[in-house]
Design a protein around this nucleic acid. Structure first.
Lengths: 214, 214
DNA sequence: AGAGAAAATGTGGTCAGACCACTTTACTGC
DNA sequence: GCAGTAAAGTGGTCTGACCACATTTTCTCT
């Protein structure tokens, strides 16, 4: 058996499908593939990586359940825009989080949101904030939708992605359903526009986060 | 959603492996299985659900990647403690193929560290801090090892997990090699013990994070 | 030549069976 | 009783075969 896979040489330590997940990650990274792009077919991957098609499928199905890729019968497999997937809800359905984890989730989420708000103050485009004020005035939204947008206008999208995960987890764990008066959100946006950090912190901590105590 | 295929009568609407995931969920719930418990073997599931073993494996491998189950060759498949999930790690690995996110690594890391320090002030056991002071005085360590320990004594281990990912990726992305005089770290620990938030922030931001500018 | 139909091709979806590697259990001979 | 070995059970992987669906190519009839 000449397992000539440049990097992992006969690495029986880990399971093949995990290797493939990693290979795919590298491949996507190397080729600069973006959401919507097509990745090689199962058969081609199987041949290229010198593994059975079933192993390739185990890897792809895993990534699909994770929401990272999407497969369309007869067409192919495509990279998916990462968004909130029902998967995380599934997690909640599987196992309940213990009290401690739940608190961690809540705390971490708040922390990310506070950091995001500061980030917006320091680095977001003023125009984005103004747009969001218009949006807030005309649209209906809940707490989640609000912060989703706030994270979008923060240039640090890594933070956004972490928040998405944590937020999903918290929801699936049956976290508190936060919802403050719309007015507060609008005030928060104005404070953001005026770069009034203290006011932002006050509205967020004392106002929006008031109702639920963790 | 008309996701009603429990009966599975020629219902080609959804993929088999997703059905199996759902079946497993119900099975676990019905039998009241807990972490550590063993679930039926692949072959038994295959027969019981009247599906191919490869489909069963696709489902199991997906759940395994999610960290919901654990498989041990020759033994079987077991339900895993939810705490050990690695969703954050996984998603993190794929997030970072996004070029833009890479630039946010340093910023996010600092943010996590600051948050961790505040968390230690508010919630860590005093004894842990004292232990760490002893450790710091007698051992040799670098910046990474120091914060690794700080995160460990912070009760919020979710934060730790996130940091681990961000940190490792920053390293692999060739981030700055931070290293402050040992004395500063010791001072930081003392400030932690005295719960002097301002001092902590000062030492961290102006001292330890002095050299590198982001 | 053009439009529509039919066939070929490509791709994911699923299954069955065959081995392998490893662990647990049962059995056997002393 | 005990050690050593055989058998059974279980996950890990591969191969090959179909099916279902979508796209592309080819063919046929006007």
């Amino acid at each position: 058996m000449n397992d000539n896979r440049a990097d992992s040489v006969k690495n029986k330590q880990s399971k093949i499908y995990l290797d493939i997940v990693e290979e795919l990650r590298l491949m996507i990274q190397a080729d600069g593939l973006l959401p919507g792009d097509k990745i090689p077919s199962e058969r081609e991957l199987s041949e290229r990586l010198q593994v059975g098609r079933s192993s390739v499928r185990e890897a792809l199905r895993s990534l699909e359940l994770l929401g990272l890729i999407e497969t369309r019968r007869g067409e192919g497999t495509f990279i998916k825009v990462f968004q909130e997937h029902r998967l995380v809800e599934l997690l909640g359905a599987f196992f309940l989080l213990d009290e401690n984890s739940r608190n961690n989730l809540s705390e971490t989420k708040i922390l990310l949101e506070q950091a995001c708000l500061q980030g917006v103050v320091n680095k977001a485009a003023q125009a984005d904030i103004e747009d969001m004020i218009q949006w807030a005035k005309t649209q209906d939204f809940d707490d989640e939708a609000f912060f989703q947008r706030v994270f979008q206008i923060n240039p640090n999208h890594l933070l956004e992605r972490i928040w998405i995960v944590v937020n999903s987890y918290e929801k699936s764990a049956g976290g508190p359903n936060r919802k403050a008066p719309k007015q507060l959100y609008v005030e928060l946006l104005h404070a953001l526009m005026h770069k009034d950090s203290d006011e932002i912190d006050r509205i967020y901590s004392k106002g929006i986060r008031l109702s639920d105590k963790s």
